[in-house]
Write a protein that binds this DNA or RNA. Sequence first.
DNA 1: TTTT
DNA 2: TTTT
Lengths: 167, 167, 167, 167
Amino acid sequence: MINRVVLVGRLTRDPELRTTGSGISVATFTLAVDRQFSNAQGERGADFISCVIWRKAAENFANFTSKGSLVGIDGRIQTRSYDNKDGQRVYVTEVIVDNFSLLESRRDREARIQNGGYNQPAGNNSFPASNGTPIANSNPAPAPAQPQDPFAGSGDAIDISDDDLPF
Amino acid sequence: MINRVVLVGRLTRDPELRTTGSGISVATFTLAVDRQFSNAQGERGADFISCVIWRKAAENFANFTSKGSLVGIDGRIQTRSYDNKDGQRVYVTEVIVDNFSLLESRRDREARIQNGGYNQPAGNNSFPASNGTPIANSNPAPAPAQPQDPFAGSGDAIDISDDDLPF
Amino acid sequence: MINRVVLVGRLTRDPELRTTGSGISVATFTLAVDRQFSNAQGERGADFISCVIWRKAAENFANFTSKGSLVGIDGRIQTRSYDNKDGQRVYVTEVIVDNFSLLESRRDREARIQNGGYNQPAGNNSFPASNGTPIANSNPAPAPAQPQDPFAGSGDAIDISDDDLPF
Amino acid sequence: MINRVVLVGRLTRDPELRTTGSGISVATFTLAVDRQFSNAQGERGADFISCVIWRKAAENFANFTSKGSLVGIDGRIQTRSYDNKDGQRVYVTEVIVDNFSLLESRRDREARIQNGGYNQPAGNNSFPASNGTPIANSNPAPAPAQPQDPFAGSGDAIDISDDDLPF
DNA sequence: TTTT
DNA sequence: TTTT
């Protein structure tokens, strides 16, 4: 059948990278996607969408994003359920990510990091999307043995996906 | 049936805004969408996708984007054909845009414009997509007869759509 | 930002149509979307995705679908939470439907209904999706007080959407 | 960046399967996707969208679809250009298909084939989408050395994709 | 005719 | 060049 999702939003926290028992990498994160229109109360609101990414893409994702990062993803909706400690069935809906794209410029990312995660000084305002200063991934001293910054020396957007990366 | 498209890319030129005989606004533009992977020759390439946007959204689009702007859109593919002056049938495929979202920060947008459209000085490199040079809170003298900056005073992304805008 | 979903699946039950206090129609339903690939155990599985549709489209949807209907939809993911009677916070993820398309032929739909919802008699097998048993040209006596069958007299697929319907 | 398309429509002709010089399978086809709404003249219209599918998925696609088949696909828009014999540059926009899903029941497919491609006898009308009788793929006597019908014995939709098929 |  |  067909099950396809495309989202652009910001990470609500640093992604969590784990490894399954069988040694497969998984990263989980939540995307805050601002809604298009304000409600009657004039609030714009956002949807907070749980996402899961697997394998090499998970590692790449974890290496190049952090709280506040602006990313685009495409994937599919997956549902599952489990019984919690109270014996209650909990239903979970997540987006399984196939590909992602980092949509924030180095400039914005660094400014966002500088500002402690929010990318615009008070009284100053961003145009559309992106801005802020996260904490992680700033690469303050180009730590060796760190994942290479794939963006160094490139003015291009870089899309990153499953297993197929040059880095 | 189903016909849905989502794109994130950059305008190859300023959008062209026109009015139909019956007074409806239309804007046309081409989005350059970088491909995800490089080919055998190591070239990354891009797709150049013709887009059309109608009515009030067309006016908003034309007011807030220009060559190089990073935008996200959703819409549908439309095909049509016409006979050119040589009597040959020409087939056209365009994306009819339902909604758009400006994905570039004010910082990046202004830096990009400062740089004459290309957003990163040589030797300096952008992170993923988007770029620019911050002159935050600009709009130095709120040029009269200019479209109001809908982004002033907001740190959030702003999505803009058909007829439903607060400005 | 961008938040777009496209699904094709079958209703797990008849849709539930309600009216809000302010008189707006809403229908809710769950789509079962078969997964693309089987897991290690050879089970194919499906995702069960909660959907919500509003206004006139909700009424149309409720009139022309039932348990087992094959439908395509496009919309966006919405998240919300509430506290249940046990004082526990429950997180809900739903798809807000913008448009839908009925993807089942009259033949299949009638056969499905004949069969009590499941569309293929044992020993008989469906091709891909959808099923049913032809009793073409039915609608034997155009049941009064019934929603008009928008498909009568048309060999075309019919897509149905918000407020814009000819019926 | 992001470039994602989802379509549901019918093949305007049998797909064309070819092999590149380096031995890779490609199939091309056009999807007719009925538009959602009628225009001022009451015509509904359709978009005719060129699609390309590669490798094993191409072979599967060619084996299980024919003129009139109802299919869902997801993929991305690709643009290219070439100079024709008259030395004129021709611009081409195609959808590169990642996955497809056969959305027509065996019943409808066979009825469509019986009817010579159009799936409903005159004066009789289809419900929403699908119907008709194509010519190919009917498998009248289970021709040996033919691709196995992946749908035999299954009441479920079957989605087919790149390289990952059980048949 | 293409963006960064 | 178009499907149902």
